[in-house]
């Protein structure tokens, strides 16, 4: 049995007992667990985030929903309290018609959905089908994100994002998540997405894993990972550090999507980021977290935090 401690691996028990419970303030959780609250928080702070076209808080909100959809072309339907990308429907094209029965939605899995199926999806979300603990939920209709050309050879479908883990506002580790054929377009590592370790100083991809195994090439596109460098890297780090200032969550995961025109944009935040990031980077979180803990009092400004992580990680 290998000595995980010598690799600095942070285990699940320690993650919860030493980082999440003491450093993440329970009252701040709604701002990251509830995507509607996250969207409002980010909007008011002026940080880049997907545009919120419309929201549905209760079933009666769907009465004039058909009218509200008029003029939209593509968008995403999301549960506010969903997890791991569950319950999300991506609409690539809306064929809007004055008659509800003639309105059609072309979704990302090349299916055509009629209006009643759309309403069913909305009501499923409202009833709490996808929410973290089955509570009644709300629906966001949000801007559909695009894929930066850099990723064209790195994905088969879906949207890649960068997960950055920050401790006390300092980025400590980052991972690029690439949806694959077997993950069915989702970015979750345990569903088969590829996770790439990223050098914080440069945005270079260092390692890649799929299903806990190291790989050299992308499984779907055969693209070699060697030497690839994520665009808008410095801006991404800055965005992550800025967003961490908004919430009282010491151990935070920030998911960033790079847009072709506007650069990095915050997709969501997570108060319980997972541990696979360590495998993707082939490096443990513990020494980095301990280093930040010992030096954090000296790091007051946003720039000093970014510099610290660029220099050390």
């Amino acid at each position: 049995m290998i000595d995980l401690k010598s690799f600095g691996i942070l285990g699940n028990n320690n993650r919860i007992a030493s980082y999440i419970l003491p450093h993440n303030k329970r009252s701040s959780y709604p701002y990251v667990d509830d995507k509607l609250k996250t969207a409002k928080l980010l909007e008011s702070s002026g940080l880049q985030s997907p545009k919120l076209y419309s929201k549905i808080e209760k079933m009666s909100d769907t009465k004039n929903l058909h009218e509200r959809l008029k003029g939209l072309n593509d968008f995403v339907i999301k549960p506010a309290r969903g997890s791991m990308g569950n319950g999300i429907t991506i609409v690539n094209e809306l064929k809007w018609n004055q008659k509800e029965s003639e309105t059609h939605f072309l979704t990302s899995n090349k299916k055509s959905m009629d209006y009643s199926a759309f309403i069913y999806q909305v009501s499923s979300i409202l009833s709490g089908l996808y929410s973290l603990n089955g509570q009644p939920d709300r629906v966001l209709i949000q801007q559909k994100l695009k894929v930066h050309p850099f990723f064209n050879d790195l994905i088969y479908k879906g949207v890649p994002d960068v997960r950055i883990i920050l401790f006390k506002g300092v980025p400590v580790m980052a991972m690029l998540r690439l949806p694959t054929l077997i993950s069915r377009g989702k970015g979750n590592l345990h569903q088969g997405a590829v996770g790439c370790g990223v050098e914080l100083s440069s945005g270079k991809i260092t390692k890649a894993i799929q299903r806990n195994r190291f790989i050299k090439k992308h499984p779907d596109t055969d693209q070699d990972f060697k030497g690839l460098k994520i665009p808008y890297w410095e801006e991404s780090l800055r965005l992550a550090v800025n967003s961490a200032e908004l919430v009282d969550i010491g151990y935070l995961g920030v998911d960033i999507v790079i847009q072709p025109d506007s650069g990095p944009i915050i997709l969501e935040m997570n108060a319980r980021p997972g541990l696979s990031i360590q495998l993707a980077n082939q490096s443990g979180l513990l020494p980095r977290l301990e280093l930040v803990e010992s030096k954090v009092d000296e790091l007051k400004s946003i720039d000093s935090k970014i510099n610290f992580s660029v220099e050390n990680f």
Partner: peptide, 19 residues
């Protein structure tokens, strides 16, 4: 009170020692 590794984590992270 236990903050150590879970048994299955040795399995999950054993790749980290490889290559």
């Amino acid at each position: 009170n236990y903050k150590g590794y879970r048994l299955l984590e040795y399995l999950r992270f054993h790749q980290i020692a490889d290559e």
